[in-house]
Design a protein around this nucleic acid. Structure first.
Length: 785
DNA sequence: ATAGGGTTAG
C-alpha cells in the first residue's frame, strides 16, 4: 500500500492550494481522486483545514466518487471545521437521500465543541422537513433559539417551511409573525404551507396581503385551485400572471388533468410549445398522463418524440408514464420495448410493466416478470394480486396473498380489497372472515373502499348481520357503500329494510346513482310494489336526471309483468331507447306464461327465437309457455330445436340458506354428504311432483346431453331434472370439479322453483353474476354490479 | 442556502 502511494506521489512531488484546485478541476475518475488523496496524506497537506474542506466539498459533489470515500476522508481529519461538517451533513441530505444521517452527524458535531454557523441550521431543518418529523424539528428549533441564530432570515424561513411541511400551520404562522425581517421567501413559504394543507381561505388571505406577488406565489395558488377543483379560478389567475414561466404552464396543465379536463390539458400543452416556452420532464409526464386518460396514443407518441428531441427521454418518470400509456392503449409491445431498453429503471417501472401486462390480459408474462424481480414492494404484490382477481383467477389471487403473508409483508389496502373480492366471487366465506379478523387485529384503517368491499362480501355470501355490523362501524360512507347495503339487503330478501335504507340515504349528502336505483327497483320488484316502482323510476329520471339503462328497464318490465300488466310492460319495452336485453324479454315472456297470455307469449317467443336461435333462455321460456297449456308436441319441438342449436349448458352454483350457510350446488369442492341431502330433497320433490301429474318432458332433455359433457360435471342439469322426476337413479359420485364462469341454466331454475314450491321454502342461489331468489315456485334475480 | 409543477398498483 505504502509502496503504491509512494509510486503515485513520485509523479507530483509537491502540492499546494493552487495545484490542488487545478488537479480537482481535471479530476474525472476515481483513480485520479485516489491519487490526489494519497498525495495529500503523504505530504501532510490533509491537515490543512481549508485544503481538506476543498477535498470533501469536491468528493461529495461529484457523482463518480462513492460516498464512503468522503466519509473515510472525513474520519481522518483531526479538526474538521464547521464548513466541513456542514458539507457532510448537506451531502447526506441532498445527494444521498438520508436526512436521518445528517441529523446523526449533527449529534456528533455537538460533541466536538465546534460552534455551528448560520448555514448549519437550515440544513438540519430541511432534514427534519424531509423526514416530515415535527418533534425532531422542534428540538432543532430549540437549539436555534439557544444558539441565537433565530434572527437569521434564512433560518426563520426554513423554520416556517419545516412547520408548513409538517402541516402545523399554527407554528408556521407563529414563526412568521414573530419575524422581524420578512422577505418574499417568507411570504411564499407561508403561502405554500396553506396550499399544502389545502386551506383556500387562509391561502387567499395571505396571497392578497403579500407586499409583492411574484410568479412563484401565483403558481402556488394555481396548484391550490387545481387541487380544489376550481379550474376557472386557476385559469383566470394564470391569464393575469405577467411573467408566466414553465411552472405556471405546468401547474395549469396538471390542474386540467387532475380535474378530468384532459383535452384542455393537451391543448394548453400544445399552446405552450407554440409559445416557445421550454418544456421539461415534469410537464411532459402530465401531458402523457392526459394522453393515457384519453387513450390518444398518437398524441402520446408525439410527446415521446418531443422528449427524445429535447434529449430528456431517459428520465425514469417519463419512461414510466410512457410504459403506462402504451400498455393502457393496448400497445404492449411498445411498452415492452421501452422497458427492455430502459437504462435507469426503478421499482415503479417494473410495477408499471407488470400492471401493463395484466391490463392486456397477459397474466403469464406478468407473473414471469413478477417472479424475476429481485426486490418487490407492496405495490408489486398488490398489482399481481389485483390483476389475478380482475381476470377471474381467484384461487391464484388468494394463493399469492398467502405467500405474501408467509414472507411477512404487510399487505396494503389494494391487496386486501382484491383478496376480499376474490373471496366474494368464490363464496369463500371462511377465508373472508379470516381476513376481516386480520384487518381488525392489525389495526388497518377501514376506509370507504375497504369497508364497502367487506360489506359487499358479507351481503353476497348471505351474511346480512355481519354486513350490517361493518356498515354501522364505518365512519365515512360513500355512494358505493349505500349501494352495497341497499342491493345486498334486497338480494337477501330483506326488501322492506332495503327501501328503508334508501330513505335514510336521502337524508345524507350522498346522492344516489344508477346502481342505487338498481337496488331500489329490484326491491320493489321482489315485493311486487307496482306503484312505488313506477314512482322511483320516474324520480330517477326526473329528479336525479339519471338515464335509465337496460337493467332498469328490465326490472320495471318484470315488475309490471308479474303484476299482470302485460300491455304496459310491452309498451315500456317498445319505448326503450336501446335494444332490450335477453333478461328484459325473458321477464315479459315469463309474465305471459304466468298470466296465461298465450297469444302474446307465443308471438314474442317465436320472434325472439328467430332473432337469437343460439340462446337457450328463449327456447325454454317458449317451451314453458306451451307446457303450461299442455301443448306437449310444441314443447318437444322447441326442446328438439335446442339440441339442434347446441345450447344445452352445464350449470353450477352455490346455494345460500337464509342463515348464511353456503352449499356448493352442482359444482364446487364440497363433500358427498351435502350432495346426498340435495339428492334426497330432489327425490322427495320428484315423488310429490309425480303425484301432481307433471308430464315427464325430461326424457328428451336427458337424451340431449352428449358424453363429453357428462364427464365434465357430476350433475348435469338434465340428470338433475331426471332425478327430480324419478326417472333415473343418481350415478355414483365422481370427483367434482370447479367450473369457472358458472351460470345457472334455466332447467336448474325449473328444479329449484319446484323445490321452493314443494317445500314452501325460500331459497337464494348465487352464481357468478347474480342472486336468484326463489319463492312460491317463482324466481326473481338481482344482478351483481 | 430558504419558496412553486408530475408519474405507478385499485
Amino acid at each position: 500500500m505504502l509502496e503504491h502511494v509512494r509510486r503515485l506521489t513520485a509523479l507530483t512531488p509537491t502540492i499546494n492550494l493552487s495545484i490542488l484546485e487545478t488537479n480537482l478541476q481535471r479530476c474525472q475518475w476515481v483513480n485520479q481522486f485516489k491519487q490526489i488523496l494519497s498525495q495529500m496524506i503523504l505530504t501532510g497537506f490533509i491537515t490543512d483545514t481549508y485544503a481538506a474542506s476543498r477535498l470533501i466539498n469536491f468528493s461529495t459533489h461529484s457523482n463518480f466518487i462513492p460516498f464512503y470515500y468522503s466519509l473515510k476522508i472525513f474520519n481522518h481529519l483531526h479538526n474538521p471545521n464547521t464548513f466541513i461538517w456542514n458539507t457532510v451533513m448537506r451531502s447526506h441530505l441532498e445527494h444521498h437521500n438520508s436526512p436521518h444521517q445528517a441529523i446523526n452527524f449533527y449529534k456528533l458535531f455537538l460533541l466536538q465543541n465546534t460552534p455551528p454557523d448560520h448555514y448549519t441550521y437550515p440544513i438540519l431543518l430541511r432534514s427534519c422537513a424531509a423526514r416530515v418529523s415535527e418533534p425532531e424539528g422542534q428540538q432543532i428549533h430549540d437549539h436555534v433559539v439557544k444558539s441565537g441564530f433565530d434572527s437569521d432570515v434564512y433560518v426563520r424561513n426554513t423554520l416556517i417551511n419545516l412547520y408548513a411541511v409538517c402541516g402545523n400551520m399554527v407554528s408556521a404562522r407563529k414563526v412568521f409573525k414573530e419575524s422581524l425581517v420578512l422577505d418574499m421567501v417568507s411570504w411564499n413559504t407561508l403561502l405554500a404551507g396553506y396550499v399544502n394543507v389545502g386551506d383556500v381561505g387562509e391561502a387567499e388571505f395571505v396571497y392578497d396581503r403579500m407586499p409583492v406577488r411574484n410568479t412563484i406565489a401565483s403558481n402556488s395558488m394555481i396548484v391550490l385551485f387545481g387541487r380544489k377543483g376550481c379550474v376557472v379560478k386557476a385559469r383566470r389567475l394564470f391569464d393575469l400572471i405577467e411573467g408566466k414561466d414553465m411552472v405556471s404552464w405546468s401547474a395549469l396543465i396538471s390542474c386540467y388533468e387532475q380535474n378530468g379536463m384532459c383535452e384542455e390539458a393537451l391543448v394548453l400543452f400544445v399552446n405552450m410549445n407554440v409559445c416557445g416556452v421550454m418544456v421539461d420532464e415534469v410537464v411532459m409526464v402530465t401531458a402523457i398522463s392526459a394522453c393515457t386518460s384519453l387513450s390518444v396514443v398518437l398524441m402520446g407518441r408525439s410527446v415521446h418524440g418531443l422528449a427524445a428531441k429535447v434529449g430528456i427521454q431517459d428520465y425514469v418518470s417519463l419512461q414510466n408514464a410512457l410504459i403506462h400509456l402504451y400498455s393502457s392503449c393496448g400497445e404492449i409491445l411498445d411498452a415492452q420495448k421501452l422497458f427492455n431498453g430502459g437504462v435507469l429503471l426503478d421499482l415503479v417501472s417494473w410495477n408499471s410493466m407488470i400492471s401493463g401486462y395484466l391490463m392486456c390480459g397477459l397474466i403469464e408474462d406478468a407473473k414471469t416478470l413478477f417472479d424475476s424481480m429481485v426486490e418487490k414492494d407492496v405495490v408489486s404484490w398488490s398489482a399481481m394480486i389485483s390483476g389475478y382477481a380482475q381476470h377471474g383467477c381467484f384461487t391464484e389471487a388468494v394463493t399469492l396473498f398467502q405467500e405474501m403473508q408467509l414472507l411477512g409483508i404487510r399487505p396494503d389496502e389494494t391487496a386486501l380489497v382484491s383478496v376480499i373480492s376474490a373471496c366474494t366471487h368464490m363464496a369463500a366465506l371462511d377465508l373472508g372472515k379470516w381476513i376481516h379478523a386480520y384487518i381488525s387485529k392489525n389495526k388497518f384503517q377501514v376506509n370507504v373502499i375497504l369497508g364497502t368491499t367487506l360489506l359487499d362480501m358479507y351481503m353476497k355470501c348471505g351474511c346480512v348481520e355481519n354486513a350490517l355490523e361493518v356498515f354501522y362501524a364505518m365512519e365515512e360512507k360513500g355512494v358505493s357503500t349505500w349501494n352495497a347495503l341497499i342491493l345486498g339487503l334486497a338480494m337477501n330478501g330483506l326488501v322492506e329494510k332495503s327501501l328503508n335504507m334508501f330513505e335514510k340515504m336521502k337524508n345524507t349528502t350522498t346522492l344516489p346513482n344508477e346502481i342505487t336505483f338498481m337496488g331500489v327497483l329490484g326491491a320493489c320488484r321482489h315485493m311486487g310494489l307496482v306503484d312505488e316502482g313506477r314512482r322511483y323510476f320516474s324520480s330517477m329520471t326526473q329528479e336525479h336526471k339519471i338515464e335509465p339503462n337496460v337493467k332498469h328497464y328490465g326490472c320495471v318490465v318484470d315488475l309490471l309483468g308479474r303484476a299482470g300488466l302485460l300491455k304496459e310492460a310491452e309498451e315500456l319495452i317498445e319505448s326503450m331507447p336501446m335494444a332490450p336485453d335477453v333478461a328484459t324479454w325473458g321477464a315479459l315472456l315469463g309474465a305471459c306464461r304466468k298470466h296465461l297470455n298465450n297469444e302474446m307469449g307465443e308471438r314474442l317467443g317465436r320472434k325472439l327465437i328467430q332473432l337469437q336461435p343460439d340462446h337457450d333462455g328463449f327456447h325454454v321460456l317458449l317451451s314453458n309457455i306451451y307446457a303450461s297449456k299442455g301443448n306437449w308436441s310444441n314443447v318437444l319441438e322447441i326442446r328438439g330445436n335446442m339440441a339442434h342449436h347446441g345450447v344445452v349448458k352445464i350449470p353450477g352454483c352455490s346455494v345460500i340458506e337464509a342463515n348464511g350457510t353456503v352449499h356448493e350446488f352442482l359444482a364446487g369442492d364440497k363433500t358427498h354428504s351435502q350432495i346426498k341431502d340435495i339428492e334426497l330433497m330432489l327425490n322427495v320433490v320428484a315423488a310429490k311432483l309425480k303425484i301432481e301429474g307433471y308430464a315427464p318432458i325430461t326424457n328428451e332433455v336427458s337424451l340431449d346431453i352428449d358424453e363429453e359433457e357428462k364427464e365434465t360435471a357430476l350433475f348435469s342439469h338434465s340428470e338433475k331434472l331426471a332425478v327430480a322426476f324419478g326417472l333415473i337413479t343418481i350415478p355414483p359420485p365422481a370427483p367434482i370439479r370447479i367450473i369457472k364462469n358458472l351460470r345457472i341454466c334455466n332447467d336448474c331454475h325449473t328444479v329449484v322453483k319446484l323445490i321452493s314450491k314443494a317445500f314452501d321454502r325460500e331459497i337464494v342461489i348465487r352464481d357468478r353474476h347474480r342472486f336468484h331468489h326463489f319463492k312460491h315456485g317463482s324466481c326473481s334475480c338481482l344482478d351483481f354490479w
